[in-house]
């Protein structure tokens, strides 16, 4: 897992939770549409899969931390 699955999962779930009611408010889907229940689950899965894929950023090494040397001891 290269990305951040917890962040991806949480925000994916929130994305789906907000998307369903928003589509209803904008007149795209009916109030009793199964999309309102399914989209949060789809968002959760997509968020985790997206984190597993991690297409953004480069896996640069983190700055090295200073370690004591023999001279300092």
């Amino acid at each position: 897992m290269n990305g951040r699955p917890v962040i991806g999962g949480i925000f994916g779930l929130l994305f789906g939770l907000f998307l369903g009611p928003t589509l209803w408010l904008w007149g795209v889907i009916p109030l009793d549409s199964p999309a309102i229940v399914i989209l949060p689950l789809v968002g959760l899965v997509l968020g985790i899969l997206f984190a597993a894929w991690a297409p953004f950023g480069s896996a640069e090494p983190a700055p090295a931390t200073a370690t004591p040397t023999d001279e300092e001891e």
Binding site: N2, G3, R4, P5, V6, I7, G8, G9, I10, F11, G12, L14, F15, L17, F18, L19, P21, T22, L25, W26, G27, G43, L46, G47, I48, F50, A51, W53, A54, P55, F56, G57, S58, A59, E60, P61, A62
Partner: peptide
């Protein structure tokens, strides 16, 4: 729809951005 629809759209975009952020690679130590 008024303000509720715009609020919903804003929250959706913000959550979508958060989901995309989950796809940023972790730094390798």
């Amino acid at each position: 729809p008024g303000g509720a629809a715009w609020l919903g759209a804003g929250l959706t975009v913000a959550a979508g951005a958060g989901m995309l952020a989950g796809g940023i690679k972790k730094k390798v130590v």
